[in-house]
Amino acid sequence: MIRQPLRLAILEAERMLSAAGVASPRTDAELLAAHLLGVERTKLMMVPLVDPPVVRALHELVRKRAARIPLQHITGNAALGDVTLEVGPGVFVPRPETELLLAWGLATLEDVERPVVVDLCTGSGALALAVANARPDAQVHAVEKDPGALTWARRNADRQAEAGDNPIRLYSGDVTDPMLLMELEGLVDLVLCNPPYVPEGTPVPPEVGEHDPHDAVFGGRDGLDVVRHVIGCAARLLRPGGGVAIEHDDTHGGSVPALLSARRVLCDVRDHTDLAGRPRFATARRTEPADGSTADPSTSVSAGS
């Protein structure tokens, strides 16, 4: 059996993926090879030659990726922060852009001991588990309404707990429920959320449109249906000084900060760009009203006479 250069197999994989319209053909080719060989991508150069069955197996993985099956569905995992999550059909695949939101959230907790954190629309549990991993002293709560996604989140949470890491508390719940997490009202240091935010009808890549759950991607006509409820929930849950960060569509650089600013108990509203310079997530902090009450004046109602 004549061994073959792995470099040539990766070049052929890159060619196939490029022809199929995959956005990052070289990266995906190398990640598939690393997954198949059980090595880190940076160690591929230490495997100069491979047997023909390995080349055939790589070709089969590349064929699936060329059909626009998400890379993470093929490898079975995705990373966020320092955690690796199991993902597959029925759950939203975490994106690298969310690393920036995670970093902001962790930075706000630097001087907070035993923080209370809530991850709304948790999906695979990515943000919640990444925070719990980075802050072993944190009490982390994660909410998801979709039963399929909740199954993936439970699987990932169980794996992290079995590894001895900080466990999270998972809830089946909906951010539109005004009673959600009432026991935490006014006690939360940080609320994070990567909600469905793509405006309905927006063209998306096949990896998203054909494989991510529709309700985890699209957020109504303007993409803000869920975001509006997330902001209301965060305003209710946060303690004075607590922070909220919400990922959004790159067309929402003005609208999401405006929605946050409309809540008079939220202040220091800012929008943040991703590495490509596109608007990506908005943040705010909870402040006390001037009269010292904890109710949100923008949502309060008066009883009729």
Rank of each mutant, 00 (worst) to 15 (best):
T287A: 14
V54S: 05
A34F: 08
T108I: 01
P89Y: 04
A284E: 05
V301G: 03
L102R: 01
G123A: 09
V143P: 06
P206W: 00
T299N: 03
E207P: 11
M179T: 13
A258K: 12
D82W: 04
D212N: 11
D212S: 10
E162V: 11
D250R: 13
T283M: 08
Q160E: 12
L102M: 02
D177K: 05
L100T: 06
T202N: 02
L6S: 02
L181C: 08
E60W: 03
L36E: 02
D271I: 11
T27E: 11
R236I: 07
H252I: 08
T283N: 03
T108P: 06
G76P: 11
L190A: 05
W104K: 09
T176M: 12
G148C: 12
T84V: 15
A245K: 04
E14M: 10
L101P: 03
G242T: 07
P25L: 03
E110M: 13
V208M: 07
A34V: 12
V118Y: 02
V204H: 02
P178G: 08
V55K: 02
Y197K: 07
V208T: 07
V188Q: 01
A276F: 08
L190N: 01
I2R: 15
V55W: 00
D225F: 07
V230A: 05
P94S: 05
I74W: 00
P167W: 00
L49W: 14
A262I: 03
G21D: 01
A9Q: 15
V143D: 01
L102C: 07
P136H: 07
L106N: 01
P203M: 06
P297Q: 03
V198C: 03
A282P: 09
G220S: 05
P96D: 04
G241L: 10
Y197T: 06
M46L: 15
R68P: 08
P199A: 04
R7T: 15
T202R: 10
D174E: 04
G123T: 08
A66S: 15
A34E: 05
G81Q: 01
L187W: 00
G81H: 03
I69C: 08
G232R: 14
L192S: 07
G173S: 08
P115E: 00
P196Q: 02
E113H: 11
P96W: 07
G81V: 06
M179D: 14
R285K: 14
R114E: 14
R286E: 03
V191Q: 02
H214Y: 15
N156H: 06
T84N: 13
T251W: 04
V143H: 01
R155L: 15
E144G: 07
P279Y: 00
E97S: 08
V50C: 06
D222V: 09
